[in-house]
């Protein structure tokens, strides 16, 4: 999804006029963004957008408001002052916004929570900005919390032998406790082990 895709998907939804007005207000006075961002979901609704179940009309509207705002500090503030749905909307929009590394502290905040939705959202495409140690902790936290690893963007590209060591240690703890590892984590660990063996043999 790009911002243009979201604009197109919102072209005919109920509440479109409200959104146009909100975007115009944010353009002329960025201080109005807070209340408009908070209200966007109940104005636009929580129906999934056609073509992409990850986006609801309300979340897409929030992404457009952030793009209109285009000010990293104000975007960070909207996350910090947001409820869970507002924070999820900011995290989902981060890869679409031109804000460099300014969103990294928001990923770190989301990864500290115990809300599986926030943890998963922190490991989307914008996680390319996360350093390797934080990213690995995030992946292992997904395994720990039962979050499907399909939530992690570019999982196999970034997974390294250090992650393999952490997963292997978790697998040992689970085995000692008589508990199962999630299948997708075991599969990842197997892929990493095979890759390591062929590297050593080469």
């Amino acid at each position: 999804m790009t911002l243009d895709d979201l604009r197109a998907a919102l072209a005919a939804v109920p509440g479109r006029e409200w959104l146009d007005d909100a975007l115009a207000r944010v353009r002329t006075d960025p201080d109005t963004a807070g209340p408009l961002f908070a209200r966007a979901e109940r104005k636009l609704g929580r129906e999934p957008l056609a073509g992409d179940g990850a986006w609801t009309a309300g979340r897409a509207a929030r992404a457009l408001l952030l793009a209109e705002l285009a000010d990293p500090q104000r975007i960070v503030t909207l996350y910090q002052q947001g409820d869970a749905a507002e924070r999820l909307a900011v995290l989902a929009a981060l890869p679409l916004l031109d804000i460099g590394d300014a969103g990294v502290p928001l990923l770190q905040d989301a990864l500290r929570t115990n809300d599986a939705r926030l943890v998963a959202a922190a490991l989307g495409p914008y996680a390319a900005h996360l350093d390797a140690a934080t990213w690995r902790q995030g992946v292992v936290k997904c395994v720990f919390m039962g979050i499907p690893l399909s939530a992690v963007d570019r999982l196999d590209d970034r997974a390294d032998q250090e992650l393999a060591g952490m997963l292997s240690a978790l697998a040992q703890e689970r085995a000692a406790a008589g508990r199962r590892m999630p299948d997708d984590a075991t599969a990842l660990l197997n892929r990493l082990t095979v890759a390591d063996t062929s590297r050593k043999q080469a």
């Binding site: 929580r46 115990n114 939705r117 720990f144 919390m145 039962g146 499907p148």
Partner: peptide, 25 residues
């Protein structure tokens, strides 16, 4: 309030059975 949302909670969307049910991280 116009804000009451009584739609059913969807376990899939919140990854139910995750950290809380398992005792936290």
């Amino acid at each position: 309030s116009g804000r009451l949302d009584l739609s059913e909670t969807t376990p899939g969307a919140t990854f139910a059975g995750s950290s809380i049910a398992r005792g936290g991280s």
